[in-house]
Amino acid sequence: MTAKPMQEPTFLILTALAAGPQHGYGIMADVAEISGSRVRLRAGTLYAALDRLRCEGWVDVDREEIVESRLRRYYRLTTAGRDRLAGEVARVRTTTAVAAQRLGLVGGPA
């Protein structure tokens, strides 16, 4: 299995869902928080990504609610999505460890 490196929005969305199911707005807010406000997902990007991630089988709908007469859908990470995210974490960790070592950053990741 040779997977392509994950794009950052995908990585952040999966990370946002790793803690538990969230709705669209919650994912956007969480992604902003995780990235230290560096990445601000907008609705167009988020839903194009969610649609793709559902196709990949990494994300699925958890439940739906109606809040103030609006549909609110919660998404959750599937087992495949969890595996994929874990794989990406391992990949990034390996490369950053090497980078840290070569830069002489003591101890690497604590």
Binding site: G24, Y25, A43, L46, Y47, D51, R70, L71
Partner: peptide
């Protein structure tokens, strides 16, 4: 197809923001 899947939900997110 995408509209029927997501439009209402996206609208909710857009209005919330």
């Amino acid at each position: 197809g995408h509209r029927s899947d997501y439009a209402e939900e996206m609208l909710g997110v857009l209005m919330a923001g």
